[in-house]
Design a protein around this nucleic acid. Sequence first.
DNA 1: TTGCTCCTCACGTCACGTGAGGTGGC
DNA 2: TTGCTCCTCACGTCACGTGAGGTGGC
Lengths: 280, 280
Amino acid sequence: MFRIGEFARLGAVSVRSLRHYHEIGLLVPAEIDPTTGYRAYAAAQLTSLNRIVALKDLGFSLEQIQHVVCDVTLDELRGMLILRRAQIAEDLAVQHDRLAQVEARLRSIEKEGDMPRDDIVIKRLRAQRVAVIGSPAPGFGPKNLAPILTPALQRLAEILRTRDVEIVGNAFGYYEGDPDSGTLVAYIALPIGPAEVALPDPAQIVDLSEVEEAVSVVTAGATEDGFPLIYADLARWIDAHDYEIAGHGRDVFLNTSLPETDEDLVIEIQWPVRKVGRPI
Amino acid sequence: MFRIGEFARLGAVSVRSLRHYHEIGLLVPAEIDPTTGYRAYAAAQLTSLNRIVALKDLGFSLEQIQHVVCDVTLDELRGMLILRRAQIAEDLAVQHDRLAQVEARLRSIEKEGDMPRDDIVIKRLRAQRVAVIGSPAPGFGPKNLAPILTPALQRLAEILRTRDVEIVGNAFGYYEGDPDSGTLVAYIALPIGPAEVALPDPAQIVDLSEVEEAVSVVTAGATEDGFPLIYADLARWIDAHDYEIAGHGRDVFLNTSLPETDEDLVIEIQWPVRKVGRPI
DNA sequence: TTGCTCCTCACGTCACGTGAGGTGGC
DNA sequence: TTGCTCCTCACGTCACGTGAGGTGGC
């Protein structure tokens, strides 16, 4: 029989851990002195302790270990191991990704010598029903789009107001076609509730489907000249993180009321992306 | 300005997270209604939120993020990233190892169709001072060793008793040479304190150095026939976990008093190992 | 008697999730 | 007035680490 300190040394665990295992009933000392409360462990219990440590090394929780050491069939154990394998593999993937991201940032610091952009994230865009007005546009950028989207937004808002349709989110622009072939169409969209309504031309109802992954960056008070820089940063980020652009983006106007100055203009740029090499 | 729910949706985080970030001062709402306590976030604050989310994705703690977003020089940031990279790499190595272990167990189940041994662990053996008596031995196994070690242990204990040397651990056997060439020497050892003492022949004082990694398994009540099976299990485990044997092992007698029956015999088998491919 | 070991609370960790119980705004 | 959103506590999570304050054993 060993006192707790000696048993802990033999098993290479802390005394506190042994007390904890006792507390939760995972490893109860062979004897407990009724007057002093001193715990005494039998030599053979080191086998149990080893088993606990071994399972902990596999990443099992104490609760799972409890289950394994008590009564588990071979099939159950196999199931647990398969589950564990999947979890570890997922965790590995996450960490692998993180490592790549940290390294990308470090490279960016070494090369550019200044703070890398750390305000770009990946997020999911929910499916939503929107009211839209589409208009042909000569190209991207606020200079091309503002004169088209601003009146369209006012008109769309007016239409929705007269029909009593509730607006449930921020206005955003989205795009189809491309400027080089002269087929670019700019849509201004306003999220609305799921109720069925009919809208007069040129307004339409569109159900946008979910976008699983989109890069998102928010610009506050950016001027006309600022946008190409942001686009370049986004493109570099996408490249450095092994994504590729998967369709036209959206520009979400976070200040719904029309801005007084550039300072007030807050836009979230959302570009759908996918991991390089992953099929659509 | 957005109410907390809308802002949470825009940032793809939970309302509770925003409250938590407020609580710790990481992201304070632009305005708080003094009467209702309602939080209001400015559109431009989405940039801050994105930054927080991006840094969290790298695995930084909120405290570290606090530091980064407040005031951090490029060099400090670089330092943090380098540290983070090292931590992730270490974590990756651990998970990689775990995955290999889980897979080894699964293979073992598939092949053998029964419970794999889950009571084998790797531990460090501390450096320690021992009193020993060495004797030539014909081979390994209890049959060969017991007749040699048992009287040697009694003699050694007697010597220590007469010299008033304190025994601070369990007796164990360790070995040098090998049986094939007839050079095997079996030592019985008793851990003693660090004080300088002289012992009469055949007892000696030896300072055993630390063994960084040793596999450890505890056998309780194993009979003569049981040992070859355990050795086979150990060898399989070592192989499956990409270790190799790195020297003679030790047999630690966990029941210090001489056993009455085989049932009472509890031995911890310790074999020094090293990862395959890692130099000594 | 002096160290050393042991004991039992009980708080702290980290980033929130999850009620409980109550109120504001349309 | 009815939902919906918001508010503030406050406990729970996981496996212990780390004192505080006190006692047993050689």
